[in-house]
Design a protein around this nucleic acid. Structure first.
Lengths: 233, 233
DNA sequence: CCTTTTCGAGAGCACCGCTCTCGTCTGAGA
DNA sequence: TCTCAGACGAGAGCGGTGCTCTCGAAAAGG
């Protein structure tokens, strides 16, 4: 029952890993669009058809990279939060947003893979749902911890019934319990964060907000207020 | 000096238009990634090499479609604003945001073309800058008109010098004069809008905020407050 | 009328994802 | 220990892509 019993098994695991790593390197350099199975095979000294013993299609290989990207950016957000105490929620919020942006800037093509235009024929398999949730859960978690400590100024937004129900569904799906109005504002902030990073990475700010550091700092501070966190100590 | 003197000239203009139109139709159906010169040529009953008499490359054809997309979404924002009086800035803001989202939902691939992942080797030519500015200028214009009527509660955000300078540069580039803090908040709202629409179109909300109408309404209202507009009459 | 320019067609190059076949080699059961 | 099914890599090939080059026809302009 060993994880790698025979030589063949070990070789298979090893090669699968190498293929993924080579693909990730090519993705980082060229972008998802130009990621080519043949090029990966060439770099590994094999013929392209041999790759199909390990990944049934290019989309499948891409799915693996998407999962890795979600885990990467989600892990960055989680680590940033864990490095700070729960009673400093504003600092946590700031650290998370900064870590997410830093990860995106360090891995722009991976960011584009998960938050940019989806690949045309591609449909997200079930396996991507959990990794994809890590970032929003991390953000919501910071707010929940702040709320538990009485550090969250809950906004008094009136929500229509439908939206309140959707917020409750999010609470259920994420397991992070928050007032509906806070959940909605948190999702707004999350999409703001993603939009801002997209603008920065995809060149929408070209010629105006470059570098975007000061703008990003300001936006994070505003969003921190927006979701009801207390000002920085 | 007539615009179309000879038969050849007329045919050229006509064919150029037809190629663009066919390409736009394919883009709408298949997405930019799958837009194929050969397929366009096939649909027009010509051979692929003949297209190169009209567009030097696929990227050039794509650039034309990008400009059209910018004009389409920018025009939608402008028309929505023009349909309402300047003394109802909140209604204008709401109408603009709604029009932008509606356009994006009606033309998802075009939206992805301009606000999604950029094409790898692609570099935005100068001709795209002006059309690309129409949306932010329309949004800023609503705030400027409100400000001129004394209807804007200017936020008292403290901005670092560098960011204030960038905001001033935006004012200069767009020709829309606003306090720096408002400009910054407007750009935050703009990126929020784009991020939210991306989430909706690209499937990030799948299974939670679908349909996103109520959420969108709430977000637009929050952003309206955020940029300093008075509540709806 | 004759020359220059423009145009469409066709062949071709290098690439792509993917499929199929065919020897080879491995490893598990008899 | 031997055998045979299954896993494997190589290779050829299919249909597709963007793009280049050449060639003959047609139009425009002198």
């Amino acid at each position: 029952m060993n994880a790698s019993r025979t030589a063949r098994d070990r070789a298979r695991v090893e090669l699968t890993r190498e293929i993924k790593e080579t693909a990730r390197r090519q993705l980082a350099v060229e972008g998802a669009q130009r990621l080519s199975l043949r090029a990966v095979a060439r770099e590994l000294g094999m013929v392209s058809s041999a790759l199909y013993r390990y990944f049934p299609s290019r989309d499948d290989l891409l799915t693996q990279l998407i999962i890795d990207a979600y885990d990467g950016i989600g892990g960055a957000a989680e680590q940033a939060a864990a490095a700070l105490p729960a009673d400093r929620p504003q600092a946590r919020w700031h650290a998370q947003c900064t870590a997410i942006r830093a990860w995106a800037r360090a891995n722009p093509h991976e960011f584009a893979l998960v938050y940019g235009t989806p690949v045309p024929g591609y449909e997200a398999p079930e396996d991507t749902v959990a990794p994809a949730s890590r970032v929003p859960i991390a953000l919501l978690g910071t707010l929940r911890d702040a709320d538990a400590l009485g550090l969250l100024a809950g906004p008094a937004d009136e929500l229509p019934a439908g939206l309140a129900a959707q917020a409750a569904a999010i609470t259920e799906a994420t397991g992070v319990s928050l007032p509906a109005a806070v959940t909605v504002r948190a999702v707004i902030a999350w999409s703001q964060l993603s939009g801002m990073i997209s603008f920065e990475l995809f060149g929408t700010f070209a010629g105006t907000l470059e570098p975007a550091d000061a703008f990003f700092e300001a936006a994070v501070a505003r969003m921190s207020d927006f979701v009801g966190l207390p000002p920085a100590a």
